[in-house]
Structure formats: C-alpha cells, structure tokens
C-alpha cells in the first residue's frame, strides 16, 4: 500500500459517500445516471470474484464489500425506492450502455493477462470501469445545470483513478516485477474521459458560478 493508492481509495470512498448522501438526504436521484450505477455494480461484481477465496487484508475485504454493497444499494434505490425512483428521469438517461458491456467483454476475451475465468472477468471489469462514466457525463450535458452534490460525486469519482495512475508509476519504480499495463492504459483512458468535466468544474469553481456543461 502506498500513499497514492490510499488517497485514491479514500477519494473513491468519498465519491460513494457523497452519492449516498445526495440520494438519502434529498430522497432524489435527479441528475444521476442509473445506467452508470448499474455498470459500476457489474464492474465490482466482476472484479471481486475472489472476495471469498483470496484474503489480502481486512482493509481490502471491507472496501470490496463497501463498493459492492453501495453500488447495488444505489441501483436498488433508483429502481425500487418509492420516493427516489420518481425523480429518476429515464428520458434523459438514454445511453445504450449494454453496448459498453458487450464491447468490454469481447475485448477482455482477446486482451487479458491470462486466459482464465477470473482473469478475463478481471480485465472485463477494468475496461468496463473506464467507460462506465459515459452515461453519467452524457446525462449531465443533456440536463444542463448540475447540482453541487452530483458535481462533487463525479469530481471525486474521476480523481480517484488519477491517484491510482500515480500509484502505478510509484510501484513501477519501486517494485521490480510490477506490470499492470491493462490497468494503466484503462486508467489513463478513464481519467482522460473526465478531462472536459474537470475543466468546466474548475471554471465554475474559479468564477464561483453554477457548474454548466455545454450541450
């Protein structure tokens, strides 16, 4: 564990707490893409297949349970919670995210570290996480103004993988046989997808204005 990875995990945890706060406190999921939440649920379920077989550390196991539990809880809320589901606008959340699932799975079948059930699903989860934010970013562009909690949620979610990139650089130089090229390339693509959001978020913060993404 190094400071970059720990900062990344904490930033990821904060993004989830901000999202849970928004949905729980406002009893509303306006501005949140259900499709992105479903993709994240698939990402964690596909990545943490080793949850009960490989024990790395208490921290690792607890964080995996938190990530799986929170993503499934958000999806459940947005689909079935009496009050929250009324604020879900499916007319704006129209990204065809099943293409992302199919495409990433196909890619994982060809590009992986080892052709085994676990490794293919792990590579699939890495590729899918890189593009999982697309429905959410498209929804924010469509819905124009972004409420503060949603903006902070996306900001922290984008920042966490940026910390992981620093972690991979650090591990590359400090550990001899360290090679995480699948995670690195995907992580760079993932963080790059947030570039314009970070830019508009910074502009709105500098001008102390409401965050608006150009359509």
């Amino acid at each position: 564990m190094n400071i970059f990875r720990f900062a990344g995990d904490m930033t990821h945890l904060i993004s989830i707490l901000v999202l849970l706060l928004k949905v729980y406190a406002t009893k509303s999921c306006s501005g949140i893409s259900l499709k992105t939440q479903e993709l994240y649920g698939i990402v964690f379920l596909a990545r943490y297949l080793d949850l009960f077989t490989d024990f790395i550390s208490v921290y690792n196991t607890v964080m995996k349970l938190v990530f799986i539990g929170s993503s499934l809880a958000i999806v459940w809320c947005m689909r079935f919670h009496r009050v929250v589901k009324r604020s879900y606008d499916r007319d704006v959340d129209t990204f065809r995210h099943y293409f992302l699932v199919g495409g990433c799975f196909l890619l994982a079948l060809f590009v992986h570290e080892k052709f085994s059930f676990r490794e293919v699903f792990w590579a699939f989860s890495i590729y899918l996480e890189a593009v999982a934010i697309l429905p959410q970013l498209i929804l924010l562009q469509r819905s124009g103004n972004v409420d503060n909690l949603t903006g902070q949620y996306v900001l922290f979610l984008g920042a966490y993988r940026g910390f992981y990139i620093l972690n991979w650089i650090y591990r590359y130089f400090t550990e001899d046989q360290f090679s995480r090229w699948i995670s690195c390339v995907s992580g760079l693509v993932q963080t790059a997808l947030y570039a314009d959001f970070f830019y508009y978020y910074f502009i709105s913060w500098k001008n102390n204005a409401k965050l608006k993404l150009p359509a």
């Binding site: 990530f67 080892k114 090679s179």
Partner: peptide
C-alpha cells in the same frame, strides 16, 4: 505462462 500478479488493488 507466468502466474499473473495477485490482484492486491481494489
């Protein structure tokens, strides 16, 4: 084939 590294990252 060499065993892939243990997945110690989240």
């Amino acid at each position: 084939t060499k065993e892939p590294l243990a997945k110690d990252e989240l």
